[in-house]
Design a protein around this nucleic acid. Structure first.
Lengths: 130, 130
DNA sequence: TTAATAAATGTTATAATATAACAAGCCGTT
DNA sequence: AACGGCTTGTTATATTATAACATTTATTAA
C-alpha cells in the first residue's frame, strides 16, 4: 500500500500552530498554545518538532532557536535552506531562489568535502524597517 | 591615543582556550577549563564570548551552540561567515572563499531587503569520514 | 485475525544553554 | 579627585532540550 504520510495527532497540532503563525515560534511558546489541547510536556512538543523537521514540513531558524513552516511546496526533506531575517522586526522569510540554491548545492571547497546539506541565514533590515 | 584593541583578562583566557582547541567548544566546557584559573560563573564566560564575537575573534556555530576561533586573519567584524561541518567526526572548518563570499554579499532577493550579514553552514562528510 | 514490531504518546525528572539584576573594581580622561 | 565607561564578581533564575521508562496505538507479516 502506498503510504500517504499522515501526521499523528500531536504532530498535527504542533504543525498547525506553526503554520498559522506570522513568524518563527519557539518550542515553549508552542507548548503554551497546545497545552489547551491536551499536550502537557515539553518533550511531546520536541518530539513532534523533530518529526516535522525530518519530514521537511518545518525548518529551524538556528540563530533564533525557533521554527517556521516550510513555504516551498515540494520541500519534503530539509537539505538546502535559506532565510532572510530582519534584525529589527524579526520577520523571517524563506528564500526560494533557484540560482542561489543551485550555486550552493554545487559549491565545492578545497578540502574535498562533499556536502549534502546547508543552511544559510541572511540578516538585515526588511523593506519596512530600513 | 590610538586604541590598540587589547583583550581583558577574562576575554583573553576564554579566547586562548578557544584558539587552542581542535574543534568548536561549548560555553560550559570553556567554563570548566577556566574554572582552574579563577573564573567561577557562566556569565563571566558568556560575557567574554559576547565580546569576542563582537570583535570577530571568534564565531558561533549556530547548529552546535559552540564557538570557534576566527581563522580569517583580518576578520575584525563578523558579518559574513561560512563553515563546513562534518556530520560524522564533527570537524568544523571555516570556509575562506572569495567567490562564495562575494556571491553571498552581493545576493539580492526579490523582497527588497538589504542584507548586511550572513551565516552559512554546510553539512556533509569530510575527506576522512566519507 | 492475531502476533510481532514499529511508531507515537504520556510522564517525571533533569541536563544544557543562556540571561537578569545588582554590587563593586579598574582605568583613562578631564 | 571625580566622572564615565568598561569589566568583573556573584547569586539567582530563565530558557532550551533530552534521558529514562511505562504505555498505547498503528502497521506489517504470518
Amino acid at each position: 500500500m502506498v503510504q500517504t504520510q499522515i501526521l499523528s495527532k500531536n504532530q498535527q497540532m504542533v504543525f498547525q500552530i506553526i503554520e498559522k503563525a506570522k513568524g518563527p515560534l519557539k518550542a515553549y511558546s508552542i507548548l503554551n498554545d497546545v497545552q489547551k489541547k491536551g499536550i502537557k510536556a515539553p518533550l511531546q512538543v520536541y518530539r513532534a518538532l523533530d518529526k516535522l523537521l525530518e519530514l521537511g514540513k518545518i525548518h529551524k531558524i538556528e540563530s533564533k532557536n525557533a521554527f517556521v513552516a516550510c513555504k516551498n511546496s515540494n520541500c519534503e526533506i530539509t537539505k538546502a535552506t535559506a532565510f532572510s531575517i530582519c534584525e529589527k522586526c524579526e520577520k523571517v522569510t524563506e528564500i526560494n531562489n533557484s540560482k542561489l540554491s543551485n550555486y550552493l548545492s554545487d559549491f565545492q571547497d578545497n578540502t574535498g568535502m562533499k556536502y549534502n546539506k546547508y543552511n544559510l541565514e541572511f540578516f538585515g533590515f526588511c523593506k519596512k524597517c530600513k
